[in-house]
Design a binder for these strands. Structure first.
Lengths: 205, 186
DNA sequence: AGCTTACTTTGTAAAGC
DNA sequence: GCTTTAAAAAGTAAGCT
């Protein structure tokens, strides 16, 4: 029992020592992603909770830090895709996703599915598309999601297709390749989602 | 309306057993045609049966895992073939080794599209996992029967973790009534 | 633009690292 | 925790013609 207690102290101390590193990593990645300070603070709180609940065992500090940041972005309403997150982390996408699902379950974060509309302002801004296109894309997402088209689909691909469709409708055309690049999805995915969406909207593309 | 229970199909059955005898897998690999054995990669020898189609993992301890069969009958038939193949190699195999079903994978169809977003909220975010960026299915864990269900937008689903076919039937019934009482199956 | 192949998720046993 | 085996669901991706 004494041994177990000592071990607990040891791992706790190690965790506290590594906390510094984890927080600096969260800061580094958050800066690279250009997310506001509030997101870093939420990510830090999530990481601390994971540490207190001993969720880091068997996982890398960097993995939990990255997953905490991914969760924080979503909680703050400015989601980054796992692809974007893994671009600034040394942990691979698959591991970030796994770790995120684990801490999300264990900490009871009760994360809601990402709303594709949350990606519209940032993607449109990167593509230099007008407010009109953003509004149109949001309408497409809203209406087609209501018709049940969103189930099981990736939020980034869904948003990308709606933005592509909106850019056509507003005469500010962007190519599928351009939209695919900022959303980090393939043209094939945009094509597939786009076809479903315009059909559901009753638009003849 | 078709009863979703009638759409249940067993897709895979996993079972374990043992011949009650230790094995020299190196020599079994030499004599058994079609055997795949790479101890550096995995301690078990892989042997596939054609009819019924299955894959048997044979271990040094004499324990065997059979997977890929479409029914519990197929599991028994596949293992009967494996036992006879081993007997052909002059290996002692128990008379009727006990065969234990460890997992049954089933698919079914609820017959209508599902709004997974609404279902995620309705069943309770703390009771499900739904991450469409990572996988299109919603993961729903049941306590009784102790199985896991994967629900898809098409209304099709997968039930896994059960030990008997009735587990899948009970699970489908419970899922259907739960979704109905939440008004999510209309 | 297809078509093919392959990876994501779930559960499960086995022996060994 | 990993390794291997099987099968389904549906989305996404990559390679080839």
């Amino acid at each position: 029992r004494l041994r177990k207690w000592q071990e607990r102290i040891r791992t706790k101390d190690a965790g506290e020592r590594n906390l510094q590193f984890a927080l600096s990593e969260i800061d580094r990645m958050a800066s690279a992603l250009g997310v506001p300070r509030s997101v870093r603070e939420v990510a830090s709180v999530i990481y601390r909770r994971a540490l207190d609940d001993d969720l880091i065992r068997g996982r890398s500090i960097e993995g939990v830090a990255t997953a905490a940041l991914y969760a924080a972005c979503r909680k703050e309403g400015i989601p980054r895709s796992l692809e974007e997150i893994s671009d600034v982390s040394r942990v691979e996408r698959k591991e970030i996703g796994r770790t995120y699902r684990y801490i999300s379950q264990e900490l009871g974060l009760e994360m809601e599915p990402v709303d594709p509309k949350k990606y519209v302002p940032r993607f449109c801004s990167e593509l230099q598309l007008s407010e009109e296109v953003q509004t149109k894309a949001n309408e497409i997402i809203e209406e087609t999601a209501e018709q049940g088209l969103l189930s099981g689909k990736s939020p980034t691909g869904y948003a990308a297709a709606a933005i592509y469709a909106a850019s056509l409708l507003c005469n500010e055309k962007k190519t599928q390749r351009e939209v695919a690049d900022v959303a980090q999805v393939t043209e094939v995915t945009i094509r597939n989602r786009y076809q479903e969406q315009i059909e559901a909207m009753g638009i003849h593309g | 309306m078709v009863d979703p229970k009638e759409t249940i199909n067993i897709e895979n059955v996993v079972a374990s057993t043992g011949i009650g005898q230790e094995l020299d897998l190196q020599s079994v690999a030499m004599d058994l045609e079609g055997a795949d054995y790479d101890p550096e990669q995995f301690p078990g020898l892989v042997y596939r049966t054609q009819e019924p189609k299955s894959a048997a993992l044979i271990f040094r301890s004499g324990k065997i895992v059979c997977t890929g069969a479409k029914s519990t009958d197929d599991v028994h038939e596949s293992l009967r073939i494996v036992f006879d193949k081993l007997r052909d190699l002059q290996i002692q195999v128990d008379e009727d080794p006990e065969i234990v079903v460890q997992n049954i994978v089933t698919s079914a169809d609820l017959g209508r599209n599902l709004n997974l977003n609404a279902i995620a909220i309705g069943l309770g975010l703390e009771n499900i996992e739904y991450e469409p960026e990572q996988f299109p299915g919603l993961v729903y864990r049941l306590d009784d029967p102790d199985v896991v269900a994967l629900l898809f937008g098409s209304g099709k689903l997968v039930i896994t973790g059960g030990k008997k076919p009735e587990d899948a039937e009970e699970a489908v019934d419970k899922i259907v009534s739960r979704l109905e009482e939440l008004g999510l199956l209309d």
